[in-house]
Structures are given as C-alpha cells and as structure tokens.
C-alpha cells in the first residue's frame, strides 16, 4: 500500500515537471535520465535483488539501439515495431548466453559479462556494411503515432517517463511477490535458497532476460531520440557507468536506481562550469558517497527518515 502512495506522488511530480521546466536543455537532460533509469531499475533487480553483477548491459542497450535504428532506416519499419523487435532480440540473446554465464560467480561473472559486452562492441564496430562501423549511422526516424511525432524534447520526455512508471509498477509488484522473496534469498545465500527448494537458476535467468529486454528498449529510445548511433556510446565504460549508477543510488532499492541515474546523469551538466576540474570533482563526489554512505543515496534517504522518525518516537535500541 505504502508503495502505491509513493508511486502516486512520484507520478504527479514526474508528469508535472515539464509544465514548470520548459527549456529543451533541461528537458533533454531529463530524457537521458529517464533512459538511464530504465536500465538502472532493471539492473537493480538483477544486482540488488538477485545479487548478480553484469558489466555487459551496455551491450543490450546497444543492441536495442542498433536493432530498432537499423529496422527503421534500412527496412522502413515503424519504430514501434523496432522497439518490440529490439526487446525480443536482446531477450533471446540474453537467454542463450545466460545459461553458461550465470553459473559463474562474483568477479568471474563480472569478467564474463564484460567480455560479452566487448564482443558485441567489436561486432558493432566490425560489421561495417550492416552497422556503419565505428562511424555509426544517422537519420533515424522519430517515434510517431499517426501525424503526432515525438519530435520535441517535452513529448519524448513523456514517452520515456511513462515507460519508466510502467516499469516501476511492474518491478514494485515483482519485488513484493513470491519472485521477489526468491530473488532476495539468492542474494543472501544461493546454496541455502537452493536447499529450500528455490529454483535459483531459473529465477536468475528470468531476471537476466528481463533486464536485457528492458535495457534494449532503453537503447531503442536512445536511437530514436538522438537519431544517430555509434558503437562508442555502448562500450565498457557505459556498462561500468550503469552499474555505478545502481550502486551509488543504493543497490537494493528501485528508487535508489532512479536517484543514481539522476545524480550521475545530471552531474556532468553541473560540472560544466568547472572546465577541466570536472573529472576531479566527479571522482571526489563518488568517493565521498561510497565512503560515507555505503548504502548509496537511498541509504542516506533511509537514514534521514530514521532520524526524522526517531525524534518523534524515541526508540529503545538504536
């Protein structure tokens, strides 16, 4: 119940923002935050709940962008069909690599997913005839419904953030269901979960495929928003950035995933005024958050909340 109040509040804020913020630059920045949020929410399900790290999600992001972008420019298919195809392609690919990859643990899983991401990156770079190679390709059409085109930033903002809200509703439901409990048990101890009769392999796979499909949808949004894609956007740095967003935001909290995307998605914009020093400030902010708030931004929020409640209702044991 509580989640629905939070959600309703969130919806009002998100939907109302463009009425106050009209400058395309701010709206555009928030569009990117929305695209990142799609990935980080699904990643937090994988990382924070199922406890499986992936340093290869930029690959699914890229596959989505390229699948949808290519179908729209080469085959003149509607971007909406491209979007669905993108999700299916990424989901199938995730399913086919998931079986051996998800057997690995910890750093080995990190390396395997990183390696997978690099292979996809090399593929995008090398198949020049198909993908345009390292130079990428442009003139990707925008989303449209009939004559209504999502051509300006505000329209696209609504498209992306409505998707984020749908995903949030879905994920919040999953977390508070049998599946959510099973996932948390995997994070706690996979062996114990297995012993208790939880089919851990199957749950891990489901979440992996789901997050791949969602990341792919995010990629399709990116392609039809920027209208130009090149492989450089989907390299290992992006994978690491996405995981960083999830952890900085607070791993085991979907709201944290949005916070992380918001912080790291807008931070470069704040740091514009600092010129070259931006790299130092960026690093310092990350370091300070992780040193002093290992639970991430959501952890800070929770601590503030505890303190706030603590003043009203004194607790017996702190």
């Amino acid at each position: 119940m509580k989640h629905y109040i939070s959600l309703a509040f969130f919806i009002v804020v998100v939907m109302g923002l463009p009425m106050i913020v009209r400058n395309p630059y701010y709206v555009g920045t928030l569009v990117f935050v929305g695209i990142y949020s799609l990935i980080t929410i699904s990643l937090s399900l994988l990382l924070g709940y199922a406890g499986q790290i992936s340093l290869g999600h930029a690959a699914f992001y890229g596959i989505g962008a390229y699948t949808s972008g290519l179908l729209a420019t080469r085959c003149h298919l509607s971007p909406w069909i491209g979007l669905v195809c993108a999700a299916v392609v990424a989901g199938v690919l995730a399913y086919s690599i998931g079986r051996p990859v998800l057997k690995l643990r910890g750093h080995y899983l990190a390396m395997a997913t990183l390696g997978f991401g690099e292979i996809v990156y090399i593929f995008l770079n090398s198949t020049v005839e198909l993908t345009g190679g390292p130079s990428g390709f442009g003139q990707i059409p925008r989303f449209a419904v009939g004559a209504f085109s999502f051509k300006n930033d505000t329209r696209f903002y609504y498209l992306v953030w409505v998707t984020v809200i749908i995903l949030l509703v879905l994920v919040l439901n999953v977390i508070n269901s049998r599946i959510g409990r099973a996932l948390r048990s995997i994070h706690g101890s996979e062996t114990a979960a297995n012993t208790m009769g939880v089919n851990t392999a199957s749950y891990k796979m489901q979440v992996f495929v789901f997050s791949a499909a969602v990341s792919s949808i995010a990629g399709a949004y990116y392609a039809h928003y920027v209208t130009f894609v090149s492989p450089a956007t989907f390299d290992a740095n992006t994978s690491i950035l996405l995981v960083t967003m999830v952890i900085i935001g607070g791993m085991s909290n979907v709201w944290g995933a949005i916070l992380g995307a918001l912080l790291l998605g807008t931070l470069p914009e704040y740091l514009r005024t600092f010129g070259d020093y931006d790299i130092l400030i960026y690093g310092a902010i990350m370091l300070i958050i992780m040193m002093f708030a290992p639970e991430g931004l959501a952890g800070i929020a929770a601590a503030v909340k505890r303190k706030f409640e603590g003043t009203l209702v004194p607790r017996a044991a702190a």
């Binding site: 690491i240 952890i247 070259d276 020093y277 790299i279 130092l280 960026y282 370091l287 992780m290």
Partner: peptide
C-alpha cells in the same frame, strides 16, 4: 579511502577503487 572504513562490502570497495581511478586519472591529466 579504504583504511577508515568499518566492514565495507566488496562492492562498495570496488566502487571506491573506481572513484579512486577517476581521481588519479584527473590528477595525472593536470
């Protein structure tokens, strides 16, 4: 960055090293 922490988790430590790498890179740039 690491010594003062009490019982940090592995992922947090990794994030700290990522932040450290960005900082060192920035300093080297200057």
């Amino acid at each position: 960055a690491i010594h003062p922490l009490k019982n940090p988790s592995v992922l947090v430590l990794i994030m700290i090293t990522i932040a450290g790498s960005i900082l060192i890179k920035g300093l080297a740039m200057f």
